[in-house]
């Protein structure tokens, strides 16, 4: 009866893949709340693509791919801040230039290798079923670090995101906090590389957070809900990919998207149908008995 649940778990690669996917789902969703609220979706996507040259260099030097990716992501994160700080070019322009250049550099480097076709696919779209137990430990360590940072700095990040003016009158180091958030985001993206790939990590950052935004009233609730949606999407997506034999990263993202569409339609207060229903009700009310507050 429940064998369809347990059968995949008899494979070691599925156990590791599920754990990795759920961890990444939670991690991306929580930091993704800031990505959604601060309108950093483009930045997240750009950061993800720009880790490619780092991965390629690490591969060529036979070093650790994660460390190469992390180095590239940090350079790009700080580079974008540097370019746009003086206001000569707007931030999204700076992002567009750097991200395309880094992606191209990565592709050039990778195309010099013999086995690039397979590896490039893995980097772009993830290879969650190839997660080793070492990868799993590294994911847990880095992901735990990012979550701890977000928890400890919850209030400073909240104030800097909602009201930068209050942040500076309270003498918060605004620039430092913004850079720190970028660094945490870069680590998150690198950790997610193996699960959903750089092509889809932006979706894992944005979609659960956006879904939770439609449902939650307060930031802690939004983060918790996003984490739940991220974890469930990973779980369902991986099972779907096992039984339908489709790419796992894409399946995870599609499940998350389905959750978003449901919330977009049916969410109380913010959903489309709720809106319709309320405007219809107020129309019938104004024709009937007026002045009943909703």
């Amino acid at each position: 009866m429940t064998s369809w649940i347990t059968t995949p778990l008899s494979y070691g690669f599925m156990q590791r893949g599920l754990l990795a996917a759920v961890m990444v789902g939670v991690l991306c969703a929580v930091i993704g709340c800031y990505v959604v609220l601060r309108s950093m979706a483009f930045l997240g996507d750009a950061l993800a693509h720009s880790i490619l040259p780092g991965v390629a260099v690490a591969y060529l030097l036979e070093g650790n791919l994660l460390i190469g990716a992390l180095g590239a992501a940090l350079i790009v994160a700080l580079g974008i801040g540097l370019f746009s700080r003086h206001g000569v070019v707007k931030e999204d322009t700076a992002i567009g230039i750097i991200f395309a250049a880094a992606l191209s550099l990565g592709i050039v480097l990778i195309s010099t290798m013999h086995t690039y076709a397979v590896d490039l696919t893995h980097i772009l779209f993830g290879n969650v079923l190839g997660v080793s137990s070492y990868d799993l430990r590294l994911t847990a360590l880095l992901g735990g670090g990012v979550l701890a940072g977000l928890l400890i700095l919850y209030r400073p990040f909240l104030v800097v995101s909602f009201d930068p003016v209050l942040a500076s009158t309270l003498r918060l180091p605004e620039q430092l906090l913004r850079t720190l958030l970028l660094v945490l985001l870069a680590v998150t993206i690198v950790v997610s590389m193996q699960t959903v790939g750089v092509g889809l990590v932006a979706a894992m950052l944005v979609t659960p957070g956006a879904t939770a935004y439609l449902l939650a009233r307060r930031l802690p609730g939004m983060m918790g809900l996003a984490a739940l949606i991220g974890a469930l999407s990973s779980l369902c997506g991986l099972y779907l990919s096992f039984y339908l034999n489709v790419a796992s990263g894409a399946a995870i993202v599609l499940v998350a998207t389905a959750a978003f569409i449901v919330a977009y339609l049916f969410a109380p207060r913010r959903g489309l149908l709720w809106d319709r229903w309320r405007s219809q009700r107020s129309r019938t009310q104004t024709s009937g008995s007026a002045g009943v507050p909703d």
Binding site: L37, F162, D163, Y213, R217, R218
Partner: peptide, 12 residues
């Protein structure tokens, strides 16, 4: 100067 669509309550 601030984004009032932020998920915060008045007391937050």
């Amino acid at each position: 100067d601030v984004d009032w669509s932020f998920p915060l309550t008045v007391s937050d």
